[in-house]
Computed example of a mutant assay.
Amino acid sequence: MMLSRIADAMFWIGRYVERADQTARILDVKLQSITEDTPEDFAEACRDVYQIFGVERTDDSDHSVQRVLDRLLTDRGNPSSVAGALFTARENARGVREVLSTEVWESLNTTTLGLPRGVRPSRMHGAFQFAKDRCAVVNGLVDSSMTRDEAWLFLRIGQLLERVDMLARNLQDHDLEDSSSGATVTLLRSCSAHEAYIRSYRGRVRSARAIEFLLLDSIFPRSAVHCLGEIEEALETLAKLHGNSFDRLGAAEPGRRIVGRALASLRFRSLDDIVENFDEEMEQLQMVTGAVTRALGTTYFHPAH
């Protein structure tokens, strides 16, 4: 049976690599939009970007594209920035090299060392592309060079939970009242879903359909339903490996119960019902990822003896 410290580290490697990837994707689209469209309220546009990532306290000096880049792209001390997330992932990987393939470790190490320490707005797209490409290489090597054992399962669960959390944050930031194709395309692009959406619907971009696609599409790998379904399967496999599929009363372990309820809530309700209190629904989805993380801690990472 895997040591709890290894399970914990693998889980957070998955989360932090995904966080770096998603942060780069969202910032690439959002900051490009700000610089090209020059919104009337520039400070408010920057505040909106910070809000996606949970940065609530900002002052006037923070409301520039350069400052957003400094805080959310290159700040190695901030685990929510692209560089900070990747450095934290590498630190976790350093302690569990025995369960990572050499290729994964070397790729993650190369990625963190190759990140720039400062990026100007004129060169930000290249920096975001580098981060996205390198995260794709790391994830590809995880899939192609690691056996599907417990270590891989914990990493995969971390990756998927972070993907759901970032999707919910991105959707929460979206103005539902703005049904223009421009705003909807921006949302889809920041979720890396524009091309997949076009292939699925083969028509004009519509706001309601985009929300439905991002939340409920069963075969798009970044949709909330798809990710939660994959998490549920991975948790079930882990439970069987540990012999704790059900407790003495016949109930599934806490993490699976939380994911199962969230999945059922999305699958078996109408889109109109979900959108009615959309901000609260997305807040709840973020709370689900936190609750599952705590449940994993109790069950696997820091179990009571």
Rank of each mutant, 00 (worst) to 15 (best):
R5L: 07
F11R: 09
I13P: 04
R15W: 05
V17T: 15
R19T: 07
Q22E: 15
T23K: 04
R25E: 01
I26F: 09
L31S: 07
Q32R: 14
S33Q: 14
S33M: 06
S33N: 13
I34K: 03
D37Y: 07
T38M: 15
P39V: 13
E40Y: 10
A45S: 15
R47C: 02
Y50I: 04
D60V: 08
D62G: 03
Q66I: 02
V68S: 01
L69T: 05
D75R: 00
V82T: 08
V82P: 01
A83Y: 01
A85I: 07
T88G: 01
R90E: 03
G95L: 01
R97P: 07
V99M: 00
L100Y: 09
E103T: 11
W105M: 00
S107Q: 12
T111V: 14
R117A: 11
G118W: 10
H125P: 00
F128P: 03
D133G: 12
N139C: 08
G140C: 02
M146D: 03
T147S: 15
R148V: 03
R148M: 00
D149H: 06
D149F: 01
A151P: 07
L153S: 14
L155N: 10
I157W: 04
Q159M: 12
L160H: 05
D165Q: 04
M166F: 01
L167H: 03
N170P: 00
D178R: 01
D178H: 01
S179F: 02
S180F: 09
L187E: 09
S190C: 11
E195W: 05
A196H: 11
S200A: 12
Y201S: 02
Y201W: 02
R204M: 10
R206C: 08
I211W: 12
F213K: 11
F213S: 11
I219S: 15
F220A: 08
H226T: 15
L228T: 08
T237A: 13
A239Q: 08
K240T: 05
K240S: 00
G243C: 10
S245V: 07
L249V: 13
G250T: 07
A251F: 12
A252Q: 13
G255V: 05
V259T: 07
A262N: 11
D273L: 04
D279L: 04
E280P: 00
Q286T: 13
L296S: 13
Y300T: 05
F301W: 01
